[in-house]
Write a protein that binds this DNA or RNA. Sequence first.
DNA 1: TAGATTGTTAATCGATTAACAATC
DNA 2: TAGATTGTTAATCGATTAACAATC
Lengths: 209, 209
Amino acid sequence: MMEKKISMAVIRRLPRYYRYLRELLNQNITRISSKELAERMNITASQIRQDLNCFGGFGQQGYGYNVTELHQQIGFILGVNKTQNIIIIGAGNLGQALANHAGFSKRGFNLTAIFDVDTDKIGTKINGVEVLSLENLGEYLEENDIKIAILTLPKQHTQKVADLAISHGVHGLWNFSHMDLEVPGDVFVENVHLSDSLMTLSYHLNKNN
Amino acid sequence: MMEKKISMAVIRRLPRYYRYLRELLNQNITRISSKELAERMNITASQIRQDLNCFGGFGQQGYGYNVTELHQQIGFILGVNKTQNIIIIGAGNLGQALANHAGFSKRGFNLTAIFDVDTDKIGTKINGVEVLSLENLGEYLEENDIKIAILTLPKQHTQKVADLAISHGVHGLWNFSHMDLEVPGDVFVENVHLSDSLMTLSYHLNKNN
DNA sequence: TAGATTGTTAATCGATTAACAATC
DNA sequence: TAGATTGTTAATCGATTAACAATC
């Protein structure tokens, strides 16, 4: 499928396009030019056309883009057109919040299990999903088709749990631990470093002091 | 303070430097060269020196950087050396999880109140912090020194609540709603679009299909 | 056909890396 | 002093924007 390498900058814009196209569909707008979409998104039309052409010619000269089709194509590129199983490792505040988050299932992510070490939590259900013992993680991954694990556990344990998950077939890690993971080249890590994010905000409020 | 414009790319790396320097301190390492730090962080020494020199010459030729001093300087640049009051607007799953998150107070962020519209929640406490009615938000902001608001409410209401907060002195928004905010030029928005982040991860697992 | 807008090439801009003189 | 490593300038690389021929 891949010909030239797609830059990270482009990839990170795709979900935003997807979001704006969804909004257009909600407003029953079926056709849009790069120029008008650019105005709505506050970027250049040139960037939109360059970005989309990384994946193919989705538009039509003289007409623009068909919103339904473009939305669908980007959904396909992002892999949200199908169901993907995910697990959460770490049933703390954040893990629980993510388990209860409604938005993920809408985008095809199917939470099948939550893992923790706390015996008070093991055996209970969060948002209808069972909490299992971390001891059974390897076994569980062998028996189920899980490519994505959400890491919401204390940072001291994150690397070794990640290693375990990877050794049992997980290829994508959504890492909420406040540290960087080392993984093989064929595993992708998406970091959500909340403290880093908050510090960036703080910087902007304090830069003129 | 500011002379030349600091690029966003540099700013987003600062919390990561801060994190690695903290780690060095924990290991009782008091001195480090850009070369060695670069190896640990998997970036180039050149980039480290360029980044740091945006803010001043923190190093010493022939020696390297004093870890304690550099850590402190970056903390100062990020504004985490002092206490900053923050509020959470929206006491749902995510709002509650953030309220319970221990890490923020460690970096000087002091949660003073949580706002919601749910009468069952108003008057209760989350992690020792009172939940107040959203109706009292404007009044509260007038009476307290709050520069940062965390937005964890349904996206349909986020823009108007943001407008209200801004009109009462809030200058930084940590936006967890799945939408983009429009704000005046002197207000900074840091977005945490979790769905976008998860879709980026999904892309990488599906790109070779 | 004429008008509009894409796909794509070329130009510009900014960020990263390399090189090295300054200096501790 | 000699060795090491910074601060900073120059070179390279990549990403964004502009321009325009292709074409619906």
